[in-house]
Structure formats: C-alpha cells, structure tokens
Design a protein around this nucleic acid. Structure first.
Length: 649
DNA sequence: CCCCCCCC
C-alpha cells in the first residue's frame, strides 16, 4: 500500500474534533498499558496505539477494549493498515488540555504491511487541544518539558522521527481553534454553585468540560471521560424497595439530545442528592456517571446502554437559552397498524388523533383490591385505530374533547380483544408534539377526511386478522391441550394442505343476507331455508372446506370458510359451484391440487365443539391464511425472543 | 443495586 493511501492529515482532523472521518491509518506502535483500578473495573488490559497518517504520528490512541481481540488474535499488529470506524477525542488532562483519541471501532484493512512514509510525531501544540482558553495558561509550558513514560516508549519505537514532541512550538503560537471556545474573560467567571448544580465529588477542580460534549448515542461503558448535554424528558418519583441486601430507594430519568436518548438511575445517597436537581424539560451537563449494557426487559429506550449516577457524577444545569437546540423528546413512532405485529407487554411510541374519549371509570384491582381510575381513548391514524387506556392522574387530567394529536412515548401493548395500548407510569403523553411533522400531517388528514373514515380497529376482537396468535407445531397444539379451555385459543401453524374434501367444498347457501344457512333444493326451482323458514328462487354458493393440514410433527383436520377458502383455492365459491354443477372435475382437481402445492401460515381458532361436549372434541377453524412470509412477523418474533431471554438465562 | 404499572 502506497503512502498516499493513508489519510494524510487525518490525525490532526480528529484532534480538531472532526471525528466522522473513517480514515485509513497505519499502526506504528502498540503498547499494553496497566489498567487503572477504576476503569475498567474488571482489570481488562488496554492497548495504546501509535497511529500514522503517513505524514504524522500520534501516540495517545487508546483502543477500546472491545477491539482487544484484534490484537490478541494477531490480526492487528505493528504496521497493520486500519480503517477507523468510530473515534472520539477525549481530554486526558483537564489542566493541560492534553487530549487522546479513543478508538472504539476499527477495521483491519491489511494485517501485514511495511512502514509507510516517514511520519513525524504531531507537535505538542497540536495535541493540547481541548478548546478551553485556560489550556493556554502557563501551566502548559511546565507540562511541555515533562514527557510521560508512555510517550518515550513510542518515540523509541517509531522510526525516522525528525521532530520529537518536545520540539513542538510553544502553545501560545498555536492556531488551534475551536468552535464555542470560551473567551479569556470566561476563565475568571466564578463557577456556579447554585442549587441546580452538583459535583457529587469533593474534587472541586474536576469541573465539567462543556467544550467537549459527547453525543448520547456515542456513550459506552469503555470511555472514561465524557460530558453529555441533554434534556430530561421524563423523571420517575422516588421509589423505595426492599431486597435481600436491605432496603433502598431510587429514581430514574431519561435524557435526550439530538443524537439519542439514555436512561439514568440514582440509588440511595445519589437518589436524594440528585432527585431535586433534575427538572423535566430542562437541559443539563452530565459527566462521570457509570454506564452499563441496557437491561432490555425493563428499559426500552433506544440505547444499548444505561447510566447509573454515582458518587462522582457531576450535574450542572445549562444556562438559559444554552440548550435550545436540544430536543424535548426522542420518538420512534410506529404506525397504529404496526401495533398488531408487536408482542403483548412490549412498549412502543405511537402517534394519532383522539377520535373519541370515554368517561372516567373506576375499577377494582383484582389482586390489589385497590381502586383505579381509567379512561379509554380511541386513537386513529391514516390506516387504523386502537384503544389506548390511561390510568390514574393521566386519566383524570386528560381532555380529548378537541380531538388533539397525541403522541405516546413508551406505551405498553396489550392483547385484550386484539390489540390495545395501555399507559404505564413511564409513558409520556404529548399533545401536539412540535418535534415531529406527523403532528401537522395527522391534523390535516383528520380534519379533512379522517374524522369520518371508518378504519380497522385493532382493539375489536372481531377484526380477526388483527388477533395475535403464537406459532405452534401441530404436535404442540395437541400436547398443550389448546382449544380445550373455556375460551378459544388462537394459534398460527405453518403447514401444508394435504387433503381437501373437494366434493363437499361448496354448499348452497341461503340468499338472505347474514343467514348463511344451507338451503334444501326442493327440485321445483325453489330452495328452502329452514332457519328463515322460507322458500327462495335462488341460492348462493358458499365454501365450507373440510381439509387436512400437515406439518413435520403431525396433521389436523380443520374447517375453512368462505373468505379463507377463496384465498386458498384462488377462485370464488360461485365459480367453484358452477364447476361442480357442470361436473367439471378436471378443473376442480386442478384448483385443489394447486392449493396444496405450497406451505402457508394458517391462523386457527381452536375450541371445544359445542355439539360434542361429552367427547370434548376440539374443532379447528381457519380464520386467516397467508403465504409463508416472515417479514411482517419478524419484529414481533424479535420482541418475543427478547422477552424470553431473561427466562432462558 | 430497581424492574410494580392495575379492569373488562
């Protein structure tokens, strides 16, 4: 690889904060460093890299421990060519402004390579670069003469340097500039010590670095210095708990910035200290809290990590106006129709127009024997409607009389009578949220046509296609005794049609709308319906298929009625009936055989046959049939697997 | 380190 293929100047661009670039660089030195006792707590080893962009080298490049394996398995070594995927600038020394690069993600482009070019170490003036003018104070020159040990090691191993770091220009001559850097006057502004800020630590000199703000979506447990600037989008009450280790208390809150969201929790001492500092809707600088992988069972925010406030956590309220660019909330809306594909008890963000609102109702909790207040609202969007239940204060305070656009963040999916939504404590209810164009879209749509449209209601069990059903094998259905309970069971089965009773596939149905009963051919041009107790001059063909479906585990006879039979056979009952009348057997065989060619997903209702109570024979009725297409179910299956995970562990 | 969130 030729030297011009390295991203010349990239190291400096990174240090100046342009960290989006995915630069091709060369590793010219690797050093193992002792892990500090506090980070990471497991004592995992850390690697420090010296990187070259062909022209310059920079040695303070920490490798994120999740990338350690690349070195451990020898694919990343001295002279390897890499592509930086994710990098961040961190200040190592607040006093001097000395920075380092954190390499969170890289790709080895070429494992074995020769040294490229003749790079020299970046001058110190370029690497003391935190953007705060206080870094340009006299203290830096003291530092300048004092190389740290790691630096010396690298200087010794990197070949052909002509300009060691110590020959760098004095800091006062640097032209390093920073957006948003403070003025010299700012230096002397006394630190705010108002009640809306805390540095839980007594280390007063360890102030928040407001110049280097990390985006929330870039936070991870492997970085040790970061500050976020974020708005509190929600905050719980303080709750107490009791576990084997004793009693405790906690509260949690959610932070948002333009990049994402993260949940933070405070326990006990921090709970008391931090709870009064954080106000919903306000913007804060947060530094030095613990980060850990998210527990998906409880935290559904769009972030792989969650935050715990600790003794060292620093929180400072943003000055008025300073946080105006930080959004109020992060929504990940799904259309109402998509709620049909979500697992019960999962949570989601939904936006819609309030079509109607119920009165407040008081109900008695089954186990708790406590009274609860609830209010149902019918929420609609362009394609579907769903009932959302609000509880307690949210229910009491809700006024939907003006048909507002309402956004729910973190509302729970229920499966009563199809699909419902139920607000929980952490659910945010936002009226006419300004941060999404959906508000206006829905407003215009509803006022123009939505208010009079009749849309499928996910919360009506009669909309049977919306009903959710677990996937089972035919053997599981028998083994689990599905359909033998008081209420019907609904199951999806992936199976093949193996037998269709073609001779009884259609029957002569009463022409009276909604009757559906079989008529008797009086053989005089009249057809008699016993149910209506009437003779008709005509009848309609209707499907009532008796068929066997099979999968790898067994087979089952099922009944298939009009709509589903038509979907399966591909022709109308009327047409099938006419072939039957004309005894056109070859066409009928053709139609039937085609229907048995490929696997489908049969949604079945399993219920004890009412006419055979003694035998308790379960009758299976096909209520929906679809092609085997996993895509519409993928999200729900993923949700279900996620919910199972804790049980499997 | 919590993790409850209700009714037909």
């Amino acid at each position: 690889m030729a030297s011009q293929q390295l991203a010349t100047g990239a190291l400096l661009r990174y240090l100046h904060g342009n960290t989006e670039e995915k630069a091709i660089l060369q590793v010219v030195g690797i050093k193992t460093i002792d892990s500090k006792t506090d980070d990471p707590p497991t004592g995992t080893k850390r690697y420090r890299l010296m990187l070259s962009d062909g022209k310059s080298t920079f040695s303070s490049c920490m490798l994120g421990t999740q990338m350690n394996h690349l070195i451990d398995n020898h694919s990343l070594k001295e002279n390897s060519i890499i592509r930086i995927q994710r990098v961040m600038v961190n200040t190592i020394d607040k006093r001097t402004g000395r920075v380092m690069l954190m390499i969170y993600e890289l790709e080895v482009v070429e494992s074995d390579s020769k040294r490229i070019g003749d790079p020299v170490a970046l001058p110190l003036s370029d690497i003391i670069n935190s953007g705060s003018s206080s870094n340009l104070s006299g203290k830096v020159s003291n530092y300048q003469t004092k190389k740290d040990d790691n630096e010396e090691v690298f200087l010794a191993t990197a070949s052909n340097r002509s300009a060691p770091a110590t020959t760098a220009a004095p800091p006062s001559t640097t032209n390093v500039t920073h957006q948003g850097s403070t003025t010299l006057d700012d230096r002397n502004t006394p630190k705010k010590t108002t009640s809306d800020s805390t540095c839980a630590t007594s280390k007063g000199n360890n102030a928040i670095d407001k110049e280097r703000i990390t985006n929330i979506d870039k936070l991870n447990p492997y970085m040790n210095k970061w500050t976020i600037k974020a708005r509190v989008s929600s905050k719980t009450q303080i709750r107490t708990y009791e576990n084997p280790r004793g009693p405790g208390k906690l509260f949690s809150c959610d932070f948002v910035d333009q990049s994402g969201e993260i949940r933070a929790t405070a326990f006990n001492v921090e709970c008391d200290k931090i709870y009064p500092l954080l106000e919903v809707g306000k913007v804060y600088y947060i530094a030095r809290a613990s980060l850990k992988p998210v527990n998906r069972q409880y935290n559904k925010l769009n972030n792989d990590f969650e935050m715990t406030f600790n003794y060292d956590t620093c929180i400072e309220a943003c000055d008025a106006g300073e946080g105006d660019n930080i959004p109020q909330i992060q929504f990940n809306f799904i259309p109402i129709s998509e709620v049909a594909n979500r697992a019960a008890n999962s949570v989601c963000d939904v936006i819609g127009v309030v079509k109607s609102t119920s009165d407040i109702q008081t109900i008695m909790g089954k186990t708790s024997q406590k009274e609860f207040h609830k209010r149902d609202i019918l929420l609609v969007d362009e394609n579907a409607s769903i009932t959302a239940t609000l509880w307690a204060k949210q229910a009491e305070e809700f006024d939907g009389s003006s048909h507002p656009v309402i956004a729910f963040k973190g509302i729970k999916v229920g499966d009563y009578n199809g699909r419902t939504l139920s607000s929980v404590n952490s659910t945010l209810i936002c009226q006419d949220p300004p941060e999404t164009s959906r508000t206006m879209e829905l407003r215009v749509w509803f006022d123009r046509e939505g208010k009079t449209m009749d849309l499928p209601d996910l919360s009506k069990g009669s909309d049977v296609a919306n009903r959710q059903a677990p996937f089972k094998t035919l053997a599981q259905i028998i083994a689990e005794g599905l359909g033998r309970g008081d209420k019907p069971d609904y199951i999806n089965v992936k199976a093949l049609l193996t037998i269709i009773k073609k001779d009884s596939a259609v029957y002569m149905m009463c022409p009276e709308k909604g009757c559906g009963k079989k008529v008797v051919d009086e053989n005089n041009g009249m057809y008699r319906c016993e149910k209506c107790n009437k003779n008709y001059t005509n009848f309609e063909w209707a499907y009532m298929l008796s068929a066997e479906i099979s999968d790898a585990t067994g087979s089952q006879w099922i009944n298939i009625f009009c709509h589903e039979a038509e979907a399966l056979l591909g022709i109308s009952a009327k047409k099938f009936g006419s072939y039957r009348m004309n005894q056109n057997e070859s066409i009928i065989d053709d139609v039937v055989n085609k229907a048995m060619k490929h696997e489908r997903v049969f949604k079945l209702r399993a219920k004890v046959d009412q006419f055979n109570v003694e035998e308790r024979k379960v009758r299976f009725t096909c209520i929906h049939v679809s092609d085997v297409d996993w895509a519409p179910n993928a999200r729900r299956l993923i949700d279900e697997i996620k919910q199972m995970e804790p049980m499997l562990l």
